[in-house]
Design a protein around this nucleic acid. Structure first.
Lengths: 89, 89
DNA sequence: ACTGTAGTTAAGTAATTACTTAATTACTTT
DNA sequence: AAAGTAATTAAGTAATTACTTAACTACAGT
């Protein structure tokens, strides 16, 4: 995980919406896709970016892949942001 | 200022580096440019994006334009991030 | 007023990113 | 094992973003 990947991942509105959906608990790719007017491969590619940034993790159950939020990485972004409100240096 | 503009602004490594430089206090465009191997118009355009996202503000002194951090907007990003660690909604 | 310095705006190009459809992989059900 | 469903990978295209040089605006010093 790189800081750059992390911010790049967060820079897309659709991806942020996906993260928002996942706040209510894990969802399959299909369930996520239902909230967007985008092809499933498109969804899958966005999820892949979120996964590489370690913003989400996956769990395979049968033929479904469940995506969940990885809150610890949100905390890393926050650490990055919080430093800006602290003493200079 | 839109959430999207804000995250887009933060998604570029050079722009994040510019914000980092500004942590030590206000700088002119030229002083910022000294830290990058990029044309001055390129620097100016990045700063313009940071300004539209209200991550920085400017102050003209004579022929110089000073850029400073606008920390309140960092707090807005944090608010956005913090919600992910709170109860589901 | 002219010359130089600081910065931005304009216009075009290169590079990246977001999407599409088609093909493929993995699993399930009959 | 064949057919159907879920998801990803591949390959190409459209749209966006990051850069460049050239032209311009604003101020400073002579």
């Amino acid at each position: 995980m790189s800081v750059n990947e992390l911010f790049k991942a967060l820079s897309d509105e659709n991806r942020r919406k996906m993260l928002d959906l996942l706040r209510n608990g894990e969802l399959t790719v299909g369930e996520i896709a239902d909230h967007f007017e985008m092809s499933k491969p498109g969804i899958s590619q966005h999820l892949s970016i979120l996964k590489h940034a370690e913003l989400v993790y996956t769990q395979k159950k049968g033929q479904y892949v469940y995506y969940s939020l990885n809150t610890t990485v949100f905390q890393d972004v926050m650490k990055w942001l919080i430093q800006f409100n602290q003493e200079k240096g």
